[in-house]
């Protein structure tokens, strides 16, 4: 996995609560058996006027001019600012894949849905939870200033504005460690394979019905 240490980038404000993973990447694009290539269909229904199809070329599709990612001033943005309960709904990991593929490295919101939040960490995408007040302040600042950018430091757990205001955020130690070092979860878990084996052996004795063979 790609490591995440520090990042500085332009902020795109998505002023909408309860953004669900169907919005982030509509289901017709879930038919892919790959992990990449979802960026052009990120927020497909919010971004384009027409109904997108998998494998379709997206340049030339009619754009919804008022959608944030279609506005020139947010071109090249890599930090997504959002409202509460971001990423609710389906567990599709295609949602962080699409955000990542588009170029986002950070999502900031007052709250996230659990599965989405977890999926982000597996893909080197950093979800940052800030208070409603701090998020509101960032929305106001981004509205008032073109090219508004933020600096994120995972080691220090801070989000810093260009004027120097700094907000700190929480992240649990294990996730932080994995993200900072770009560690593969599976490899880490397999370091504990003896513990898994002895757990399994004990369970097989005490609850043998959990180990039936399905045929």
């Amino acid at each position: 996995m790609r490591a995440f240490t520090q990042h500085q980038g332009i902020v795109a404000p998505l002023d909408l609560a309860n953004v669900d993973t169907d919005m982030i990447i509509p289901k017709q694009f879930l038919k892919s058996i790959k992990r990449t290539g979802f960026g052009k269909n990120l927020f497909d229904e919010l971004r384009y006027e027409d109904e997108g199809q998998p494998d379709q070329e997206c340049t030339g599709r009619p754009l919804r001019e008022d959608f944030v990612l279609n506005q020139a001033k947010y071109a090249g943005s890599s930090v997504l600012l959002a409202r509460r309960n971001f990423g609710c709904g389906s567990s599709r990991e295609h949602a962080p894949w699409a955000l990542d593929d588009y170029g986002f490295r950070v999502v900031i919101a007052p709250s996230f849905a659990d599965i989405f939040f977890n999926n982000c960490f597996k893909n080197g995408l950093l979800p940052i939870q800030l208070s409603e007040e701090n998020v509101e302040q960032l929305f106001q600042e981004v509205a008032n200033e073109d090219g508004y950018a933020l600096s994120i430091d995972l080691e220090a757990q801070t989000v810093t504005t260009q004027s120097g205001t700094s907000f700190s955020f929480d992240v649990d130690d294990f996730r932080k460690h994995c993200l900072l070092n770009g560690l593969d979860d599976i490899g880490l878990t397999l370091q504990d394979q003896d513990a898994i084996k002895s757990y399994e052996a004990e369970r097989q004795q005490s609850a043998p019905w959990l180990f039936v063979n399905k045929g």
Partner: peptide
Amino acid sequence: AHGIGTSEVEHVLATQCLVQK
């Protein structure tokens, strides 16, 4: 019982475990 993402599907396939809080 709960839903997981694809990386975790792979993790469970490979280790029969999940890292949880």
